[in-house]
Design a binder for these strands. Structure first.
Lengths: 244, 244
DNA sequence: CCAGCTAGTGTAAAAGTTACACTAATATGT
DNA sequence: ACATATTAGTGTAACTTTTACACTAGCTGG
């Protein structure tokens, strides 16, 4: 039998691109690193995968340890394995993207890998010099979110359980980086029958209060089984789009 | 500084799900393994990534060595890293899918890893007991192809340079596993202006010969820059679909 | 020259998409 | 208590896209 030992000298990590939505801004969670390499740089919450740990499990563990997050939407994006991307040796990393309700987030990096944890607006990230190839990972994950949000109702993972249609529209506008027509957006979203009108109103706002809705996950799964597709298109006009 | 040595004990491989289209059948290329583990099993062409090799480079090398394929469409899908998926140790694999023109393929596995190389119809794969977690990888890659083919003109990678509209339709039907309406399919495809009418005819067929077309890659890239999207939808009717 | 086969074509009805502007309801400040 | 500011909520007509559907054209081979 051949000897494969020389191949068993690499390591792998998971990195999470964690999206959150705060009022009108799409954000991602970064940590300020507290160890080499890239000590003091901002980067994605990520760490080595343990020898006895599945990839998804590792991603969830890191999410918990470095960001105090639990039970969130998580999806693998792809792996990044450029030779030389890590100074300690050959390290390939598996990128995940994750969607969280920002209000549920309590910054609790209960270990010493991160000295600080903070939300950054996706739109303001260009200027930041991130650790490793994390900037590329963020770009790809954002692109994937943009694609996914058109055909899957994952946007709801970013909103509180109860939300208004305007909040939902703002969320789509942030992700798609475009403006949507209010009437068309509402028509389309409501026609999908995936929202439950809670018969409750917003409170404490200095204007006409909006109705509150929640996402009907059960109905969505029913639709999925019947081969339904949650779909969103762009408008033909350059300056406006519509969630169709 | 911490010691990370214990993490540097794993290996990774690349595996290729290679799709080809032969007349009316979507196929994938498998090898009959000639070494442990899973000696004598059919499996995906894949191998260990070398320490100094990028992932994409490794995928292309393997494609070349195990299947004699060069210069083909290649795209990373995702990584599979279940603990225990490889008996030699911790090995995660990066799955790629690849689209090739089946006629260009000459089975030339110029090393001893594979004792045989063969095309299998995707539809008949269910019964085959593949090595490792390769069955799952095939399923996911096929699902991805199915999704991709609706929004990107990658189908052309599977056809010869010159093809007829009927061939193109059959290709779509194989991938989408559905029937398409001839008139609507043609209307839609031609309205995209991505095909060049070659003013040539099929020869040597025992029926009215069809016109030959080729894909206009240049125009496609122009469209991409202008934010165009190659889009395909399913029909509302259960038994038929249309490439829209 | 007939049989068999695939290529190629148009239209009307239905569905979906788009653009667009005003009234309703609340909180706050005076 | 009234005016102001602010966001919520709503309908329609023009246009575009999608869908269903059936016959003639042109070649080969016997």
């Amino acid at each position: 039998m051949k000897n494969f030992d020389s191949y068993f000298k690499s390591a792998f990590t998971v990195d999470n691109v964690i999206f959150g939505f705060d009022h009108s801004d799409l954000k991602i969670l970064l940590i300020k690193r507290n160890e080499e390499p890239y000590d003091d740089y901002w980067g994605l919450p990520g760490y080595f995968v343990r020898p006895d740990e599945d990839l998804d499990t590792a991603a969830r563990r890191v999410l918990k340890q470095l960001a105090g997050l639990d039970n969130v939407y998580l999806e693998q994006v792809r792996s990044f394995g450029q030779v030389g991307r890590h100074p300690f040796g050959r390290v390939i990393t598996v990128a995940y993207f994750s969607l969280v309700k920002i209000a549920n987030f309590s910054p609790r990096p209960d270990n010493d890998v991160a000295q600080e944890v903070r939300w950054f607006s996706v739109s303001k990230l260009e200027t930041l010099d991130l650790a490793f190839d994390h900037a590329e990972m963020v770009r790809e994950c954002f692109a994937k979110l943009k694609r996914q949000v058109r055909t899957r109702p994952i946007g709801f993972e970013l909103l509180p359980k109860k939300f208004t249609l305007t909040e939902l529209q703002h969320l789509y506008e942030s992700i798609l980086e475009t403006e949507l027509d209010k009437r068309n957006f509402r028509k389309k979203i409501l026609s999908m029958n995936l929202l439950i009108d809670l018969d409750e109103m917003q409170e404490g706002v200095a204007h006409r209060p909006a109705k509150l809705y929640r996402f009907d996950r059960f109905k969505y799964e029913e639709f999925l089984r019947d081969g339904f597709s949650f779909e969103v298109k762009e408008s033909k006009r350059k300056d406006k789009s519509v969630l169709v």
